[in-house]
Amino acid sequence: MRTLGLRTGNSLYLPLTVFLIVLLCFFLYYSSKPIQSHGQERILLKPPSTDHSQNPELKQVLKRASMSDRTVILTMVDEAWARPGSVLDVFLQSFKVGDGTRRFLNHLVIITMDAQAFGYCSSLHPHCIHPSTFVHYFSPTIPNRNLLSWKKHSVLLDVLKLGYNIIFTEADVMWLRSPLSKLNPILELSISCNVAGAGDGYMQDGGLFFLKANAIASEFLQQWRLTKVLYPNPPVEESLCDTIMRNQDVVKWFGFRVNLVNTSHFGGFCQLNKDRLSDVYTMRANCCNNLRSKVHDLRLLLDDWINFRAHSSRKNTLEPMILKWRTPQQCRP
């Protein structure tokens, strides 16, 4: 009977002990500060400063690339995406052939995840970040590419805390027109979301979004990162859209305001039937895991866009065949 009593006691105290340890770590990891939101005072968690955000190289590159309102365009590439004939080549080409997009190259910062990517990036573009700047996030001891979204959110948080608004774009997004008119500079987030799967309702973003550098945006990303530590999900990439849609109560509590951009403006291969050349601002090669197929279809997409612009400059009316993409051919949704 005594042995049974000890076992029963242990079974009751163990969950309580674990809970108290997690709660103690939570309060030690954060401090509080009051901020004003919608005219009411409330307490938000203050994210701790990191050595990464204090890196002088990062500060210098961001300062050089910043727009007048302290907005920078960020993307991330590794060696597979940054080599001759790679996704990075097509990505940079899209800015050059897009309508009013070439100027954004001056504001584009490319974060490289390994030394090979940095070497190739530096041969093409003036604003490349060496992987040593974020060595903790891009450690080779964490090779799982499914953790990329977690690393990306950590990098975004560091840049936000330096006071820079962020337009984040995946490197497989083609910039065909300036997306600035679709991004709300007042709200914390502007993003386009699509349902990627009919079964579980998983929300996928269009590969481009705007984050405003303020306390609310920083606190929300910090909370998301803490949630990933305490309650790790299965090893799948979690999009920002999915994070927001599945945590509406947290979004509302933080006052994290979201501007949902029409998916016809920020399109992708997964929903190509919705997108016409006359409507689209950016196009992403999603639903395509093979890099060679991705590059092939992105080049085809840019050819279609160049032909569309040449045709529209010669005529006032557009032939129906010109309004349709030939892509994807090798990428199959």
Rank of each mutant, 00 (worst) to 15 (best):
L302W: 05
G207C: 10
G98C: 02
N290Q: 13
V22S: 12
N165P: 01
R276Q: 12
P140R: 15
L291P: 13
N194W: 04
G5M: 14
H52N: 11
N55E: 06
K294F: 02
K182Y: 15
R42E: 02
Q93M: 09
S139P: 05
Y137F: 14
D200S: 14
L160P: 03
L208N: 05
S239G: 13
N286T: 14
P234L: 11
S139L: 06
Q222W: 02
S139M: 07
S32L: 15
L208V: 15
T133R: 01
V109R: 11
D275C: 14
T327P: 03
N286S: 15
W305C: 04
T50W: 02
F95E: 09
G119T: 11
R145K: 12
S181R: 11
I129D: 03
L108W: 00
H130A: 09
G199R: 15
G199C: 00
C193D: 05
L323M: 09
S181Y: 06
F209E: 04
Q329P: 00
K228Y: 03
S68F: 08
L211F: 09
S68Q: 15
T133F: 02
L176N: 07
C288T: 04
Q271D: 10
D158V: 07
A198W: 06
F168M: 07
C241Q: 09
C128E: 08
Y137E: 06
Y137N: 06
V261H: 08
R42A: 01
F254T: 01
L208R: 07
L240R: 00
G119F: 05
G9I: 13
L74V: 09
S178K: 02
S94I: 05
R145V: 11
T282H: 05
V258W: 09
W305H: 06
I21C: 10
V22P: 00
H153K: 15
T327D: 01
K96T: 15
D78Q: 08
P47N: 03
L277K: 12
C128D: 06
F118W: 13
E219W: 02
S293K: 13
V250P: 00
E319H: 10
R42C: 04
T50Q: 04
T3R: 12
R332P: 00
I167F: 05
N184R: 10
V90Q: 07
R145E: 11
A215W: 02
F27R: 11
L108P: 03
L148K: 10
K161D: 04
P34L: 14
A65H: 01
W325G: 08
W81C: 01
R225D: 05
R284T: 05
F210G: 01
Y13A: 10
S86D: 05
I142V: 13
H130C: 00
V135W: 10
S122K: 10
S123T: 09
L108A: 01
Y231W: 14
S218W: 00
L277D: 01
T133S: 06
I191M: 03
N286Q: 08
P48Q: 15
P126H: 04
P320T: 07
L156C: 09
T75P: 07
L20E: 10
P320H: 08
W305E: 06
K324V: 03
G100Q: 10
L28F: 15
R246Q: 13
L147V: 07
